[in-house]
Structure formats: structure tokens, C-alpha cells
């Protein structure tokens, strides 16, 4: 997981997010699709902010947690994050 801090790619971010969401939901990572909104899994919007916050801690960058509201699937969030990290 820690190699993420070096060069995050959409793939590595996606994998990390799948694990993180699965952990929050108490489900197997294999059961988490990356192209559906996280609310599909019963994650409410405010709770989803904590996942964004974990991502912030994990990457050790400052992120606006509402990024997860603007990009509500794991795919969209990973792509947006990579763009954000590049521009930072």
C-alpha cells in the first residue's frame, strides 16, 4: 500500500479504494464494482467523506473530501485524483 505515495496511478488508486471501501463495508474486495456510485453499496454521502479523508491521510496530500461527491464512483474518483495530484 505504501508504494502509492511514490507514484499513484489510476490503477493503484483504484485498487487501494476497492480495499478501503470493502473494509468499511465489511465485504470482500472482489464484490466491489468500480464503475457504480458508492451509494449503491449503502454508503451514505456524509459517511463517504470519511473514505475521502482516509485517502488524504494515505496519500499524505491535502484533498477536499467532497471530491468524492463530485466523482461518486471509484473509477471517476481515481481519475480525478490523478489529475489533481498532477496539477498540484
Amino acid at each position: 500500500m505504501s508504494d502509492l505515495t511514490a507514484v499513484p496511478t489510476p490503477e493503484s488508486l483504484r485498487a487501494w479504494l476497492v480495499d478501503c471501501v470493502a473494509d468499511h463495508l465489511g465485504r470482500a474486495p472482489a464484490g466491489i464494482a468500480t464503475d457504480v456510485p458508492l451509494t449503491t453499496y449503502g454508503l451514505d454521502s456524509v459517511y463517504a467523506l470519511s473514505i475521502a479523508a482516509e485517502l488524504e491521510d494515505h496519500l499524505d496530500v491535502s484533498l477536499d473530501p467532497t471530491l468524492i461527491w463530485d466523482h461518486p464512483t471509484i473509477d471517476a474518483l481515481s481519475a480525478a485524483l490523478v489529475a489533481e495530484l498532477r496539477s498540484a
Binding site: 456524509v46 459517511y47 467523506l49 470519511s50 479523508a53 482516509e54 491521510d57
Partner: peptide, 12 residues
């Protein structure tokens, strides 16, 4: 409930 949502991060 709002506080509980942040437990994990606060603990860290």
C-alpha cells in the same frame, strides 16, 4: 453520529 463517522480518522 457525525462524530462516530469520524472515529477511525480521529483514532489515527
Amino acid at each position: 453520529n457525525a462524530l462516530i463517522d469520524q472515529f477511525r480518522r480521529l483514532a489515527r
